[in-house]
Amino acid sequence: MRAPRPRRHLVVAAGAALAITGLITGCTAGDTGTNTEPTNNSDNEASGDRVVIGFSGPAADHGWLGAINSAAIAEAAKYPDIDLRVAEGTNDANLQISQIETFINDGVDAIVLLPTDGAALTDVAIRAMEAGIPVINVDREFSSTFAARVTVLGDNYGMGVSAGTYICEQFGGTDAVVAEVAGIDSLPLTQDRSRGFADALDDCGLEVNNRVAADFTVAGGEAVTSQLLAAAPHIDALWNHDDDQGIGVLAALDAAGRNEMLMVGGAGSKNAMDAIKADDGVLKATIIYPSTQAADGIRLARLVVQGKSLGDLVEVEVPNRIVLNAPVVTKENVDKYLPTAFAS
């Protein structure tokens, strides 16, 4: 077996459509789960051997996670050769571990897993890999490269960069007051978003003057934004990390009669895009965090098990890491992104 390779930090610049790094070869995780020799096959839509896929994700307690689950199920339904087995969504790491153990015992062909806690689910994912079941890790990373055959991620750092770059384009060279309503501060994804935001602002001489953290819920967004507004009598630009909690952020702004600012959202909900398109309020842009990640995981699991590659690549195996883009949605391009927007 090869020794584990050192983990590299991956930064995807705003504007990149897809980042794909490092193929696993030899005796690493990439060897598990294929039942045929890999071929560079562009006809990936053609039906192949039956593939039993186990899917487990957190409870759909807000719109983005609901869209993750529904998109995965809808994608599997497109392929007659996929038998999808869906575990009940949960925010209990121990229950999710037991779900994966059931998938292992049932001998599924692949597992698509959005872990409620990446570190907590790492060991059971490694056990699946050791059992010859390729794991497709979605959104929240495991703490070992040996826990997944493929990892599909949104670009959290890139979200911050995109938001900060957009605000720099509007206010660069000024002394604008910038505020930030983050998500759950203990999560690495929130930390990455905030770091990307600060880095992008620094490039144009701005900084975050006022910051609060919510919990990705409407109630949480409204409560912390009310606190923020009390502490900041004037704000020029505000970035809210998540469009679900953004409903509460906007409610707090409305209740306080605060409309002096430009607001940028995050994730890409339909209600946010509708408001951007109407262009009659403070919300002028949102940053995409794709709710298609688990659907992508389903398609990739099918390709891995059937020994296929991504049709547009010369490489004959599915990559081991895919990072999706974090574009800025404004009134000028909103129609392009509305079809994949999720309902809050």
Rank of each mutant, 00 (worst) to 15 (best):
D106P: 07
G107P: 06
G107W: 07
G107L: 04
G107A: 09
V108P: 03
V108E: 04
V108G: 06
A110I: 11
A110G: 12
I111G: 09
V112Y: 02
V112D: 03
V112S: 06
L114I: 09
P115D: 10
P115Y: 03
T116L: 04
T116V: 15
A119S: 15
A119C: 01
A120H: 03
T122I: 01
D123C: 02
D123G: 14
D123P: 00
V124T: 08
V124N: 03
A125Y: 06
A125W: 04
I126A: 12
R127M: 08
R127K: 10
A128I: 03
M129P: 02
E130V: 09
G132D: 08
G132V: 09
P134H: 08
V135M: 07
V135R: 00
I136H: 09
I136K: 05
V138E: 00
S143H: 08
S144L: 04
T145N: 14
T145D: 15
A147G: 15
A147D: 05
A148H: 15
R149S: 15
R149M: 15
V152W: 00
V152C: 13
G154P: 10
D155K: 00
N156Q: 12
Y157L: 08
Y157V: 01
Y157N: 09
Y157K: 10
G160D: 06
G160P: 03
V161R: 11
S162F: 00
S162D: 04
S162C: 04
S162H: 02
A163E: 03
A163S: 14
G164E: 12
G164V: 07
Y166V: 01
Y166H: 14
Y166L: 10
I167H: 00
I167Q: 08
C168E: 05
Q170N: 02
F171I: 02
G172F: 05
G172P: 05
G172A: 11
D175A: 11
D175W: 06
V177H: 01
V177N: 01
V178A: 08
V178T: 12
A179M: 07
A179D: 02
E180C: 07
V181C: 08
A182Q: 12
A182R: 14
G183A: 15
G183H: 09
G183P: 11
I184P: 02
D185K: 11
D185S: 09
